[in-house]
Simulated assay, not measured.
Amino acid sequence: MSTLKITESVGLGGTNNINDVKAVQTALNTLLALIPPTEVINVDGLINEPLESAKTIAAIKLFQSKILGQLRPDGRIDPMGRTHRKINEKLINLSVRSDAILKMPATYAVWMKTAINELGESEVAGTKANPRILSYFKASKFWGKDDSGGVNAWCGSFVSWVMKQHHYEPVKNAFRAKEWATFGKKIDKPLYGSIGIKTRKGGGHVAFVVGQSADGNSLFMLGGNQNNSVNVTKYNKDVWKTFVVPADFDESCETLPIYTKKALSAGSEE
């Protein structure tokens, strides 16, 4: 499924319309990897008694706890409420990841498969942190213990982790996005898999190029800390000032494809 659509609230104290419950059950089954040890939920549209111990309620609470960082999850999903929006964000990221893997072009930028496999990793609200993002921090030698907030921006750390998987040494202070302008060698134009660097208010941002729009005015960038997750985001091409690739990379072997798949719109990078 692409996104979760519900008309009324589902869960503890919810309206629990049978079709809405089925939609929630299907969405949670799609996202099982995010909420272990949850088992597949029977898509029957029912919230079984007692409500507090029902599998659907338990899965909603676990999602709220693990993904939203709620200390006291309420086990309820309201239309366009915080839990509903976060479920849809995860469903979109999963869809983008699956599509990107299936449609990945033949490429010499071998690190892109690794980057694509990270789609959907996201921050945990509050003082808790996603262990995967802490691994990104380690790759860039960043000392942060929390993955949220402007002081813990992790786009550079994500690029560091990806490139280290392919034995490329990150730049010094790799957790600072603008430092990536000194990596490898600069190229004159963006190519699939190249690393783009731009300036933003209060700092910079760094991400991998995955394609361009048909009119050539936009770039689609796979990066970390884009709206607090790893995703593909559409940007105005002109905001990206520098593109780099590893020093030993033959840019004549790479192109910039037209990107026609799902993507988010540019937003927060803090």
Rank of each mutant, 00 (worst) to 15 (best):
N42L: 08
P36G: 09
G75P: 08
A181L: 05
N17V: 00
A153N: 08
V232L: 05
E39P: 00
I116A: 14
I101H: 14
K128Q: 09
R200T: 14
I87E: 02
V21K: 03
D238Q: 11
E39G: 00
K178W: 07
C155V: 07
P170C: 01
I92W: 07
L222A: 07
G120S: 00
V110P: 03
G203K: 12
T242F: 01
E121G: 00
F175P: 00
G204V: 06
Q226G: 03
P105C: 11
L4P: 00
Y235V: 10
N42D: 06
A214N: 14
W180K: 11
S9T: 12
K201F: 10
K66L: 15
E251V: 13
L62H: 12
E39R: 11
I18P: 04
Q25S: 07
F175Y: 15
D74G: 13
I195K: 06
I60P: 03
Y235M: 07
I92S: 04
D147H: 10
A54Y: 02
S213T: 12
D250R: 13
N228S: 13
D147A: 08
E118T: 13
A153I: 02
P246C: 02
Q25N: 08
G202F: 09
K189N: 13
S140F: 11
I18Q: 14
T114P: 01
T199F: 03
K234L: 10
M80E: 14
N231E: 05
L91S: 02
G223S: 08
T199Q: 11
N16F: 01
T7F: 01
D248Y: 01
L12H: 04
E179G: 00
G211L: 10
R85F: 05
S65V: 12
